[in-house]
Design a protein around this nucleic acid. Sequence first.
RNA 1: GCCCCGGUGGUGGAAUUGGUAGACACGCAGGACUUAAAAUCCUGUGACCCGCAACGGUCGUAACGGUUCAACUCCGUUCCGGGGCACCA
Length: 932
Amino acid sequence: MEYKFREIEKKWQQHWSQTGAYKVSNESSKPKFYVLDMFPYPSGAGLHVGHPLGYIASDIFSRFKRLKGYNVLHPMGYDAFGLPAEQYAIEHGVHPAVSTDANIANFRKQLDNIGFCFDWDRQVKTSDPQYYKWTQWIFLQLFNSFFNRKTQKAEPISNLIASFEQEGSAAHGYRVTTGFSAEEWKAFDEATKQSILMDYRLAYCGYGEVNWCEALGTVLANDEVVNGVSERGGHPVVKKKLRQWYLRITEYADRLLEGLERIEFSDSMKEMQTNWIGKSSGAEIDFEVKSEKGTVKTLRVYTTRPDTIFGVDFMVVAPELDIVEDMKSAEQATAVDEYLAYVKSRSERERMAEKKISGVFTGAYAINPFNGQEIPIWISEYVLAGYGTGAIMAVPCGDERDHKFARHFNIPITNIIGKYYDGEEANATKDALLENSDFLNGMLMRDAIEVVINKLEEKGIGIRKTNYKMRDAAFSRQRYWGEPFPVQWKNGTAYPLSETELPLLLPEVESYSPGPEGEGPLANIPEWVAKELETNTMPGYAGSSWYFLRYMDPQNNEEFCSRKASDYWGQVDLYIGGTEHAVGHLLYSRMWTKVLFDLGYIGHDEPYKKLVNQGMIQGSSRFVYRIAGTTNQFVSAGQKAGYDVQPIHVDVNIVDGYELDIEAFKKWRNGEYADAEFVFEDGTFSASCSLGNQELKYICGSEVEKMSKSKFNTVNPDDLVNKYGADTFRMYEMFLGPVEISKPWDTKGIEGVHRFLKKLWRLFYDDVKGQLWKEEKANDAELKVLHKCIKKIEDDTERFSFNTAVSTFMIAVNELSDLKCSKKEILEQLLIMLTPYAPHVSEELWGLLGNSGSILDASFPKFEEKYVKESAKAYPVAINGKTRTEITLALDITQQEVEAIVLKDEVVLKWLDGKQPKKVIYVKNKMINLVV
RNA sequence: GCCCCGGUGGUGGAAUUGGUAGACACGCAGGACUUAAAAUCCUGUGACCCGCAACGGUCGUAACGGUUCAACUCCGUUCCGGGGCACCA
């Protein structure tokens, strides 16, 4: 009886599906455990071997927890709105819903192949009106709420209105420039009231810049802009101001920081979020401005280092700030205008990454409030409008970028830190005693910070200020394939639809092309525009900011999720996904959770208790080298130095290792290269790989890159499942290395895992002899192998070290084979442990052993120390840290006894060479080291 | 540019808290079984040195430096690769 994995896997997948083996109930006496995978976008390219990595890990963990007696929720669904489907619709005229559903069907088939334990009854799809109805509903909650800084939480906007009606802006005046009394508030007209309220709403409307491509008549995603031009067509892209929706996530900055202390994310992930939020404390300082036009009176800068106020040699203002226009002198006008035009063509990313120093003097000066010195005001792209006040005071001796700027433009540098500044490089120290600093002279910099802030506040020219790098999240897209906003405009004021009008269905359109003036496709629908409905749609992250809640109660038509369900499942206990979501999805969903918590809809304010990051599986691309100027002549990697060549991606599936399959290459891409000729690795030129009886080899070049269809380096899991089975595939993905590490995919090696499963099978059945397993009492050696394995599998699984768990199984099977152990007592326990990793073969053998129930509901074996207890250990003995020999000692031995034994050892004596050791280090259960 | 992560044999990786570097696999080489192939099994496999061999020695975890009785592990500097940087998801 042999291991027929195809039959076995198909059989059990059907069986589990028919018996509802993965159905999860919201009622259970068992403790709950919620395992979640990051929401996949169902792309048209289908799954490649990189995608299931995290799903397999979470699947193993879910099944492991189930064996450990938990009620485990492990759902899956689709983040179905998104740009690619819309682009496909524009190009092929296929409705995004249609192509998305086709992609989902394909996705599902591929997932099913691998044997996951998802409860498919809980599947959600963000583009389903039954789902986005609740996304819109949550938007209404955001729109109808404000962040009360006094209570530090979201509250209904009606509380704010009540406060305005009673005491004017006294309690919550932080967003209005001029305060108002209760009477004044009541006297405001509707539009004014709404405009003030808009400044408080958690979802609000404002203006922001987008990538505008005139030639394509559309707004482009950052992704679609390459080197300042559109990816499609290479047209120029400039920034354009458009009305946009935003989420006021900045109000949650402190709570997002605080929450990090209560959740298990990796330190690096917490660091990334902390840096993104970018909390800093310092001061805002107003500088008097002296300019030709004289219209601008003051320049407000934000600095974290007010102590360096006497080291300010110039100011830098973000070029897009309005005040630049007023500050430029007649003499500098042309230079400034030219620079502004240049900056307009630059993306924020390019500006930040630019090493080349650029900037222009405006012609205006700022006055140092303490010593009256005139400071030139420059503009430069390295200062961004969105951070702080969009203007900085530059201190070259203390800041590297300022220093380079000063050097480049020959701006004299004032040294306020004495010997700490060497004239060559800036020094950001806070430990220097200040010099050239007027009333601060001789003061330690870190102490001077407070002194200066107090003085600024005293003189009324500055305030203490906490700043955040994080900005409010842009929440609208000028696209079709997203959730419509439940918002109606009346005379320029936005009003929410009522809950009873939800879902506001995404209307059908004739064309998916953009609307006029950068508006989305919805602006092309007369009825939509006539009703003054919002023409923007929500961004991709809207639906994914709360999907983990919907899984708890997916069919609920009354609520987004009942409080009972969310109280039962609570936080996601384990969330597995990539670091690429570090500062996007993971922050947005944390914010939404906090808002829903504040408003009382759920009982916890952090969505994820523990996050495990999965590494990215990269592709190992293969290249052929086309000789420049030819269409069909290729040179092998070893010979390419002698030619001028163009590397061309070639499908990794027609390359064996590095050797190109010449025949397959000629058939590839519908015979595009059918007439190809080659310079082979040995230098022979031929159109065929056999010359007489000589075999010619064409060797490909290689590079590790992102796995992507366009690079022809994708490997389809279906092919591997078909060839080796799902169990082998699952285990091999885990065996590749730690889940959290990125690594290139290499199919070589999967044989080893497949062999392991065959070897496991042979402990039970032999092709010739038939049944091997027997009901016999296990001996000590066998029990030791089993319990060593139980301990390690349990530990490794618990700490997500699935690769070492797989090797532990291999070791156990190797050892049991060596012991010729086929005893049911041992094998049965081994199978239960293997179930999370290789469920199909485990279930099959479990049944063959005569068990009636499903192995999915078995209990994880219990580790017993007594079977693995050792009384002695072979200690490595090192002289000066270098291992020289090994001595076996009892475990309960004392330091004195160790010394006595070790100093009598022949090898040790040889190395001591008559000398007395200075010290004998004995670490129990580890090693012995003699210091000479 | 800024933030985060990684770099160990020919390859993927192991070494969980600073304590025997290379577990487990792949590949390769040799052998057994077989008419043959597949499958399976056995042996060897970091580099270098001495040697007939057993054995023994030196080096070795990207590079350099440091801390320590002891460093893949901690600290500093540099190089290389990957992810993110606010409209890909």
